[in-house]
């Protein structure tokens, strides 16, 4: 029998959720129209993967969501909760 030379490490150190990028699981991608966005932060609060962070736009002096597509699985919750319909889900393939 051919031996599997490299042993797989089954016990892993914490912090692997940053290492394992889950973005490729996505079939739909949320696109945010920042012109419509009012910066309410609901999308960031509801995101189950904490893939949305709110950042201050100094020019417009308001908060704007930034989606990290490395981790966004495309569940569409952000689009659902957006009170001004600024987020649209688009096919991602």
């Amino acid at each position: 029998m051919k031996k599997n030379k490299k042993r797989i490490e089954l016990v892993v150190k914490p912090g692997t959720s940053l290492k394992n990028k889950t973005g490729p699981w996505r079939t739909e991608k949320p696109l945010t129209d920042l012109e419509i966005c009012i910066g309410c932060s609901l999308c960031a609060k509801v995101c189950p993967d904490s893939a949305i962070t709110m950042k201050q736009n100094l020019k417009k002096s308001k908060l704007e969501p930034h989606t990290d597509y490395n981790y966004c699985k495309g569940c569409g919750l952000c689009a659902q909760v957006c009170p001004v319909k600024a987020i649209k889900m688009k096919k991602d393939y």
Binding site: N4, R7, I8, L10, V12, K13, T16, N20
Partner: peptide, 18 residues
């Protein structure tokens, strides 16, 4: 440490082989 962690299609097969 984490035991019984997530293994994707890239390495699950090797864990079973091992």
């Amino acid at each position: 440490v984490t035991l019984g962690a997530f293994f994707g299609p890239n390495n699950y097969l090797e864990t079973r082989q091992m």
